[in-house]
């Protein structure tokens, strides 16, 4: 079972990102569960969501404690939260950033999701949308297939800029 924890801020689409990952894994023929963790947080507060992917039906409903991968949609949460807590040995980190970042013992995949969203004008109510480009980045890393990632996005959003952003993120992510 592969466990993922997603860090973002309320309103940035971390919950939808988790859903899209689960949908993409489902398109790859695997089992998946996406868990938003609903606290009392409101828009702008740091939030987490989880995804589990497995070749067997998933029976675990508690929160992910030892993720195999951490996704950081908003690097600013790193100032207030230990996003690497419990990260398994060798566990990967995908981070939305323009700064290079190295973490001892962990493969890091930096990608400028915000820049991509702005470039394709994927902006809703003034905020760049990150949850669809992140699927492209994850496909490049090999978590899900590219076809599955694009299928999950297309069945969820009508706006073609979502798929466009995911394709761009796929190209710009270092595997």
């Amino acid at each position: 079972m592969f466990e993922i924890r997603i860090h973002s801020r309320g309103g940035q689409g971390g919950v939808t990102a988790a859903k899209l990952i689960a949908q993409a894994a489902f398109h790859d023929g695997r089992f998946a569960t996406a868990f938003p963790f609903y606290g009392a947080e409101r828009r702008g507060a740091p939030v987490v969501s989880f995804v589990r992917i497995s070749d067997e039906p998933i029976k675990v409903y508690s929160q992910v404690r030892s993720p195999d991968m951490v996704i950081v949609l908003d690097a600013s949460v790193m100032d207030v939260i230990d996003v690497f807590a419990g990260l398994r040995e060798g566990g990967a980190v995908l981070i939305n950033t323009t700064e290079p970042l190295a973490i001892e013992g962990h493969p890091v995949h930096p990608v400028d999701l915000t820049g991509i969203a702005l470039r394709v004008n994927l902006v809703v109510a003034g905020s760049p949308i990150l949850n669809t480009p992140v699927l492209g980045a994850l496909a490049r890393i090999g978590l899900v297939s590219r076809e599955a990632a694009l299928a999950a996005i297309a069945e969820t959003f009508d706006d073609p800029r979502n798929v466009e952003a995911a394709k761009a993120a796929y190209e710009e992510t270092r595997p």
Binding site: F26, A32, Y38, I58, Y61
Partner: peptide, 12 residues
């Protein structure tokens, strides 16, 4: 069904 643990999670 359990609140959030089932109501809000996504599965196939």
């Amino acid at each position: 069904l359990d609140g959030f643990l089932l109501s809000h999670i996504t599965q196939s």
